[in-house]
Design a protein around this nucleic acid. Sequence first.
RNA 1: GGGAGCAUAGCUCAGCUGGUUCAGAGCAUCUGCCUUACAAGCAGAGGGUCCUUGGUUCGAAUCCAUGUGCUCCCACCA
Length: 879
Amino acid sequence: MEITAKYNPVEVEDRLYTRWLDNGFFNSDPDEREPYTIVIPPPNVTGVLHMGHMLNNTIQDVLVRRARMLGKNACWVPGTDHASIATEAKVVAKLREQGINKEQLTRSEFLKYAWEWKEKHGGIILEQLKKLGASCDWRRTQFTMDEKLSDAVIDTFIYLYNKGLIYRGVRMVNWDPASKTAVSDEEVIHKDINSKLYYLSYPVIGENTSITIATTRPETIMADVAICINPNDERYGRMKGKKVFIPLINKEIPVIFDEYVSMDFGTGCLKVTPAHDVNDYALGIKYNLPVIDIIDNDGRLNEKAQILVGEDRFEARKKIIKMLDDAGLLVKTEEYKSSVGFSERTDAVIEPKLSMQWFLKMEEISKPALDYVLNGEIKLIPDKYKNTYKYWMENVRDWCISRQLWWGQRIPAWYLPDGNFIVAKTVDEAFNIAQKKYENITIDELRQDEDVVDTWFSSWLWPVSVFDPAVCGHPEIKGNADLNYYYPTNDLVTAPEILFFWVARMIIAGHEFRGKIPFSNVYLTGIVRDKQGRKMSKSLGNSPDPLKLIEQYGADGVRTGMLLCSSAGNDILYDNSQVEQGRNFCNKIWNAFRLVNSWNAEQIPQPDYAAKAIKWFNAQFNKTLKNIYDNFDKYRISEALMDAYRLFWDDFCAYYLEIIKPAYGSPVDKLTYAETLKIFESLLKILHPFMPFITEEIWLILNKDEKEDKTIMLTLQPKPYDFDAKIVDTFEQVKDIIMNVRTLRQNKNISPKQNLELFVKGNFDLSFAGILKKLANLSKVEKIETDIENASSFIAGTNEYYVPLGNKINIDEELEKLKKELEYIRGFLMVVNKKLNNDKFVNSAPVNVIESERKKQSDAESKIKILEDNIARLQANNL
RNA sequence: GGGAGCAUAGCUCAGCUGGUUCAGAGCAUCUGCCUUACAAGCAGAGGGUCCUUGGUUCGAAUCCAUGUGCUCCCACCA
């Protein structure tokens, strides 16, 4: 195989991914090992990969690959969600392009189109995930509308209905007039909008007066059923028992009194419109007022409005204002900022609307789900979301589970001619039940509910249904082998915005049907934003195409780039430079590999410096490895990666390899070579979860004698063991000297090629001289007990090191430098002494702190001594 | 309106129960290098009143309070 000077990810990635699939390395089946399971948050079946998916799935892949390499039976279950509103909206739009209106189609005709669309576009996103390197067990791919999963949804509905938790009722729902369906509270986005507050005059019956009310929605006055005033409002005491006319249609409505109305808003008079406002609806129930619904499903006024029939609600608003103004009933208009709800999917203004819907009672079944999180059985990462979760679960409201759509699981309720209904799995079952009550009924008379269930009513079953859909709605069933092995799953990686939509409900369902939590840890990723902090979105066009990025920088590069800047729970501000950094790192790894790969190993003695370097590196490696394990335990993935990054780049490349590197063309001794390969392999293993492709590629070349079906991903991660802390410390000293010699060269303009001498005065371990010579290009490193005679330059913090520079140094300059340092240390010592002379400090500070202060004191004192000596000597030389 | 979170180098962020890991990392910047693995690189350097003001303490980036500025969540007074 040709080993190119620059790493070429495109070729490598496709080849390796195919190989992984061919060998079934991602596949998982129950066995005696400990399972590690992640279920993917199923992306929208017709969706395309965006940056959020990239981040989210990279994190999952890192966790899965790491677990696999910790010897666990790792299983990552992929799949897609049918996403009823979103997908149906897409299909409707597509059909419209073809000149087909949804209204012209029957349900089954529409569904045929929808399935065609799904077959064509469904799963694209999963193919894209493969480009990223996702190590899912693709044999297990699920779709929320597959037959078995749909059955699970229906069974769940029936189960909960029979348990008395699902009911049908008229409620004020968030109506989306564009898609003509109810949407849940969570799908409504509130925005502050500049609107107007209109003051309208309502004539009082039997008097020649009128009262003025303020409203933002004048087009709904025809649906008014009362005027409401606060009973404590003295301005309107005279209005008791009075009636008023609705302007324009002159309908009589009563004046009622309730403390709900605030006296300081508008005029203190509120028009009550139960059909079109949630609060008014509540008032209507309290005072037994009628409900007059004047707005149709598509947002147009209906005949109950009497005027402006057929007009769109916003058009009607404009017109009625003109009409009221003409009639002299518009008192005034004020600018007003109000919060308006928009549909998340269609961006239409949400209309509060009364309609018959199906609801799931949430209060009771939410309680265990709250406890799981509060008592820590389920951990939220970061845990700041615990508060939010708690608040939401304690104030949970019933879940409107019906949607007026066709794409989804149809509600299993059959209506009888008299309006009653039967909940049953099939029409035959329903018919059987019906026959017991209705003698002459025929099966044709049963009509199934037109609605489907909310998408989340299927996704909340996901961690269970992907393994064994049959247990959904059937808690009594033990479940199949998969379920019993993989469930509960371990980690869930998802976005915080669906914490309630989805996460909370999965916990509820998991408890309800399995009596167990669905997962132990919920890692909540941040939102991917652009450099200006704006959320990446299609409409802004500020999101790069992930596939192009992968092509350009390689999957490993992209993964690394994204991970490096995504500390847990924080939003990530995406910038191409991060991905560049990832790509550069790949290249660094590749080049290190090229170097090692180019060596010839021969039976020659191992140089001492190489033996030392190996010893040091192994210690350093283990030190870092401990940090990496620790960071993974805390889900600090980007920090774990940064640890590995520095270990590889700084410690391994910049020091280790530079030390042991033989002169060009010279062989390396066998011992060092073997040790280096071992080290390299360990590094690859650590990096593999983050950068699966390049690590596998190199590993395979290094292990080319291995059998065909070998892979790095099924090897075990190195385990940290106690490291030799002393050699790590000593090496820090070595590094310090090297850096100082290099700085000296830079400052004094001495070529890196020119040999220098180094004299050491303190307790430095001279056996490291070989390393110093190699990396700092020193001709000799010696220990001296007495002062050296030549004019010297001093290096390193303690100034216990001397490099003779002959007449090359400027003694005044050196003196200046030393004096400055002396001054600083003296100041430092003063501070330390002050502390130690303070009785309160000595009495109240813990022992170890005092000890460290004492050490500081003695260190500073000896440093001062050295500096003073040096200065004296220089001054003597200067004479 | 209610609640939560954040503010540390030019940028993105670490900094745990106050004290030697205490002012850190990566990137970016500047300077010098085409040194036989790597210019997607090497070597070096600079850079911060830890948002303000108070308080607690022997000691505060860290704890408390206040103010300011951002971000998010929840609610929806028409």
